[in-house]
Simulated scan of single mutants.
Amino acid sequence: MTEPDPPPAGVAQALYDRRDGRLALEVVDAPAAELARPHRTNYFTAYWVRAGRGTFHADGTRHPFAAPCLLFLTPYQAARLDPDDHLHVTAVRFHANFLCVETHHHEVGCNGVLFNDPYGPPAVTLDESTEREVADLVARMRAELDTAGLAQAELLLSYLKILLVRATRLKRGQQGTAGGGVRLPPPLPELRELVERHYRRLHAPADYADLLHATPKALGRLVKQHLGKTLTELIRERVLNHAKWELLHTLKPVKEVAREVGFDDELYFSRLFRKATGMSPTGFRAFETDVRGGSNLSMPSARPSIPPPPPTGQNADRPASDPPEPGA
């Protein structure tokens, strides 16, 4: 059994592991004192901020927030919430074992919008109507978790998908704006296109400044002002999103993954990866593969994630792995 790497000093790490018997979905009221400390999980997380305001820190980036809103956190990001006044926050956390937003992106459309989005703010503002919707969905999830009735997982998954789809639609409607409805200035839309095109080989802010005919200082100031992070952090986040996907969905060696995102030095890439996730690339892959049981991955698994149905009828004597013959 693969154990997770020990967390870096100063970061509270609580990782979901199905082998502990815990559910892959939880809905909890998160204590403000706990949220104020740097913490990391391997859950996809939605924080419903019901009261209060403050600053949301994720991997060194800073974003102001004010209730009512939703804040989204991608697995393995180190985060904390600095409150300006009393916070009331409910956390909806789910592991990829419950819903992998990357593999099932077509079902909810939130990957790259709510999660794994280095270009947009992590907050979705709620009005009175949409907060009532969120409150209703959270209450339904809580009630279902308490009762454990027939088809519990199917109902919970339905409620979660509705929450994510509604939040994705809201954020898409709010994208391109910063607080107060101000349009993001050029050349930030052009910068996004350039990073998507070149992040595997261009890692220096000066490279993008040259392509945009801007000075690195002026471009960096715009990125920091409107995206809450440095241009270096933006590029690095995009690189690491790609690397994590490759580690979880392919059998490529770490050295090959490193080279694919522009790093010839595997050791330097591994240090960068560990700093961002709290785990080495090898440890990250091994732990998450064990936790997921091979589900949604291109890795061999000791058991299928969904057991095959027992053979019935005319095919009862045929091995389960053999496809039925034509016309059967």
Rank of each mutant, 00 (worst) to 15 (best):
A36R: 11
D290T: 11
T130A: 01
H198I: 00
N42A: 10
L202I: 01
S129L: 12
V223G: 13
G112K: 09
T289I: 01
R274I: 00
G294L: 08
P185N: 06
T45W: 00
P187F: 01
P64Q: 01
D127V: 04
G179Y: 03
A151V: 00
R192L: 05
Q174N: 04
H95M: 02
H106K: 10
G327T: 10
T61K: 09
K217G: 05
I306D: 05
T312V: 14
E288Q: 14
Y208K: 02
W48Q: 05
V223T: 12
H242K: 14
D82K: 10
A153E: 15
I162S: 12
H63V: 01
A9K: 07
A32H: 04
G180Y: 03
E3Y: 03
A209G: 10
A58D: 03
S301Q: 13
R285T: 08
Q175R: 14
R166M: 13
G179E: 13
A78R: 07
H106V: 15
V92T: 13
I306E: 10
T250P: 12
C110Q: 05
G278N: 06
L137C: 05
A51W: 01
P186M: 02
V134N: 03
D207T: 06
G180S: 12
F287G: 07
Y16V: 01
P319A: 11
A79N: 07
L194H: 02
L297T: 15
K217S: 13
F269K: 08
E26P: 05
E131W: 07
L222D: 11
K217Q: 14
A178D: 12
F287W: 02
H105Y: 06
L194S: 07
G149Q: 07
A206N: 11
M1S: 14
E288I: 01
K255W: 00
M279C: 10
R53Y: 01
N241T: 10
P324V: 06
P310N: 08
A218D: 14
A148L: 09
P68K: 06
